[in-house]
Computed example of a mutant assay.
Amino acid sequence: MLEQARAPCPWHQPVWTALVEQTRHAHAYLFGGPPGIGKRQFAQAFAAFLLCNEPAHGMACGRCRSCLLRQAGSHPDVCTVAPEEEGKAIRVDAVRQLGDFISQTAQQGGRKVVVLYPAEAMNQNAANALLKSLEEPTAETYLLLVSDQPSRLLATIRSRCLVQSLGMPSRSAALEWLGQALPELAVDQREALFVMAGGAPLRAADLAAMDALRMRSEVVDGIKALLKSQAGASQLAERWSKIPLELVADWFHSWTLDLLRLSTGAAETAVNADMDKVLGYMAQRLDGAALMQWQAWLLEHRGMILGKANLNRVLLLESLLLQWKQLVERR
């Protein structure tokens, strides 16, 4: 079901204005940029605009029959293509069904819109099937592709789309948006989520919904206990059984970048304020070569985690924690 966005995120307003003011639109767009910045919301708002019978002030009106159908999730001229499960591939059958949708006449007598995300999730067969739809566009049918990694798409797909890059918001814009989205949280909690999300505000909101602040606090306390020999690696690995591996890997990756900056003098304080003292202590005691070896190991295994590899969770966490502690014990 298409989410009910009819306006883009505020930081994308200049791009939006330039797009909707065009008198003629391309039959296919590729909206690319980092995850968690509002690309999907942008595409959905554009879909709403294209379908609206009476757009006003550069936005879908939200009141016409087309808008009401879309808001109810029952507009017959909207097709959303996405993986059946998050992190899975978009299969060829889904794209072939998309071809059937495109070949039909619009039931509302206007335009038809396809929103496909994340485009890089298409397997090879699905990507090849999509090419046919891109090569043989039908009148008043618009394909909106959304991608975190446009470079992973076939060059032939990219070349048949109008590529529109969507950028990150400024820190102030992101925090202002988070203040409106998460008013129940304190300022320092929203700032912590902002850092945790790498500056991507929609990702920060998702992390808040996952209770990531509590999980992060648990992991930080565990790291402190580990370095003080008050807790063992195996004990912590068992204790963190309900914390997503993706989060743990992301946090250690961010802490490692802080260690690199601190140990080389590129920064005086850590970006991760909740680990500032720990990382400052470690930076003064670690060996540069050991840090580079650790980073290589972490990047390899983080890639495996994000790629949904079948890993032994407890053994992986034990190894990660042991190597982390050894960083300050090797000198």
Rank of each mutant, 00 (worst) to 15 (best):
N310D: 05
A212S: 14
C64G: 01
N128G: 13
E84G: 11
S133R: 07
A290S: 14
A209T: 00
E300R: 14
K308T: 08
A174P: 05
V113K: 02
V278M: 15
D148T: 10
C64H: 02
E300N: 12
C61Q: 12
R70G: 08
S254R: 14
G222K: 08
L236A: 07
E3K: 05
A204F: 09
D206V: 01
R330A: 10
E184S: 07
H25A: 08
A121F: 07
F42E: 04
N125I: 04
F46I: 01
E84L: 15
M168S: 12
A186H: 11
T269K: 14
D258S: 00
W16Y: 02
A266I: 01
R40Y: 00
F252Q: 11
A296K: 13
G265T: 07
R171N: 06
R6C: 06
I157H: 04
G199Q: 09
Y117C: 06
G32Q: 08
R111A: 13
A197H: 06
L207W: 12
D287C: 02
L321A: 14
L260P: 00
A60V: 04
G33D: 03
L153D: 10
W324D: 09
E120G: 02
Q326C: 01
L322F: 01
T256C: 12
S234G: 09
L279D: 02
G33S: 02
P150C: 04
P137D: 03
E140D: 15
L182V: 09
T80F: 03
P137E: 07
Q189M: 10
E135W: 11
V15K: 06
A192D: 04
L193P: 00
S74C: 01
A126D: 03
V114Q: 04
L30H: 10
V328G: 03
T17Q: 10
V314D: 06
L193T: 05
A296N: 10
L202W: 10
A309I: 06
D274F: 12
A208I: 04
V248W: 13
A205V: 13
A249D: 03
Y29T: 06
F101W: 00
T264E: 05
A309G: 08
I243E: 03
F31C: 02
N53M: 13
L182S: 08
E184D: 12
V81Y: 07
P35C: 11
G87P: 02
P55Y: 05
N312G: 09
K228D: 14
L259T: 04
T138A: 12
N272F: 02
F31T: 04
V81E: 03
R313F: 07
W251L: 15
H12N: 05
Y281S: 09
D287P: 01
K242V: 08
E86G: 03
E86I: 05
V114A: 11
